[in-house]
Amino acid sequence: MDELQRTALVRTKALLKQAGHHFGRPAPSVAINFELKGQAAGMVRFPASGKAQIRYNAILLNENADDFLKRTVPHEVAHVIARAYHGGKIRPHGTEWQSVMGFFNADPTRCHSYDISRSSTRKFRRFRYACHCCEHLLTSIRHGRILAGQRYYCRKCKNPLELVVSADK
C-alpha cells in the first residue's frame, strides 16, 4: 500500500468515525481495498452476510489525488452510512445519501469526470448488426450469445438483429 492509499484509508476511517459520533452510534465496520479496475472511481458492496466493502480504483486515485480524496472517498462512505442508518431500501443517490454528503461537506454528485483512458481495462470488439430501421454495434459478448442461439430485437421496430459485417470501434 502506497502513501496515497494510506491517506485514502485514513480519510475513509475518519469519515466513518465522524458519522458515528454525529448519529450517536458506531459506524459499521468496513473492509477497504484498492483493487477496483475500469471506469468507476469507487464502489461499495453490501454482501448478504459480513461487512460492507469499499473498493477504490488505485489508478484514478493516483491520477486525481486531491479531488478523489475530497469527492470520491466521502461519496463511497456516504453509501455505507446512509444504508447503515436508513436501511437497505433507500435509493443509492437519494435524499438520505445526499444528506450524509451534506454532513461531510461534500458535493453530492453521482459521477466523476476523471480521465479513464489509463484505467479502463476491457476493450470489446464490436460487431455490426442491422434491423429494418437502423444499425446497431454489439459487443463480442452479445455477438457470442447470438451465435449460441440467443436473439436480440430492435427496441424501435421490434425486428430481430442480423449480422451485417464486423467492425472494431
Rank of each mutant, 00 (worst) to 15 (best):
P47Y: 03
A84F: 06
I81T: 01
A106K: 00
M101G: 11
R83C: 06
A84K: 00
G20P: 05
I146D: 12
A130W: 08
K89I: 09
A167M: 14
V73I: 06
K13E: 02
A41S: 15
N33V: 04
A40C: 05
A82T: 11
D2H: 11
M1T: 05
V77G: 09
A106P: 01
I116F: 07
S117C: 00
R128I: 15
N64C: 03
A41T: 09
G94M: 09
K51M: 10
R122W: 12
S166L: 10
H136V: 13
R126A: 10
Q5T: 00
A130V: 13
P26S: 01
V44P: 08
V164Q: 01
A8V: 11
A106C: 02
A41F: 10
I116Q: 14
R25C: 00
G42M: 08
R110A: 12
L16A: 06
P28N: 03
I116Y: 09
G20W: 04
G88Q: 07
N64M: 05
K13Y: 02
E76D: 01
R122Y: 13
A148M: 12
V30A: 01
N105L: 13
G144Q: 15
P47A: 07
M43D: 02
A82D: 03
G42I: 06
S29F: 11
F127D: 06
H136Q: 12
N33P: 06
F34T: 01
H112Q: 10
I32V: 15
A78N: 01
L16S: 07
E35T: 13
K158W: 08
R110H: 10
D107N: 15
I141N: 06
I59R: 13
D67V: 02
V100I: 15
A19S: 06
E76K: 07
L69A: 04
H143G: 11
I90L: 02
D66Q: 03
L147W: 09
C157V: 04
R83Q: 10
S166A: 13
A19V: 05
G149E: 03
E35G: 10
G94F: 06
K123L: 14
I116W: 07
D168L: 12
K169L: 13
S119C: 09
A130G: 14
A19I: 05
S29D: 09
